[in-house]
């Protein structure tokens, strides 16, 4: 099985029942924005960099990571 980057909605939380499709993504987005609350722009950039490294290590698979890097670079 070849690994590919998931590009369809994929957020969920164990033990939580969602009645609305938008809820899990909105839960994540709120946490993300909250994590940046009261930070300076520089601190925010540092947080983002650390977050990417943490998640990249969690994903681990370089095929997927390279595809994500490619997608992220489009339209920048």
């Amino acid at each position: 099985m070849t690994s590919t980057l998931t590009l369809s909605p994929n957020f969920s939380e164990a033990g939580k029942r969602y009645f609305r499709a938008f809820s899990p993504g909105d839960d994540f987005y709120e946490s993300l924005i909250d994590a940046h609350r009261d930070l300076t722009d520089e601190q925010s950039a540092m947080l983002n960099a650390k977050l990417i490294l943490l998640l990249a290590n969690h994903v681990g698979d370089l095929t997927i990571l390279r595809e994500a890097l490619l997608r992220a670079r489009e339209d920048v």
Binding site: S8, Y29, L39, S44, N48
Partner: peptide, 29 residues
Amino acid sequence: SKASRTFRNAVLTLAEHHSFARALVNSGR
């Protein structure tokens, strides 16, 4: 904040191509 605006615009840009990002676009639930 600037970070929040950057994320918002990143979601909107990705949304043109990817369904996961479309689900994050929030113009009112």
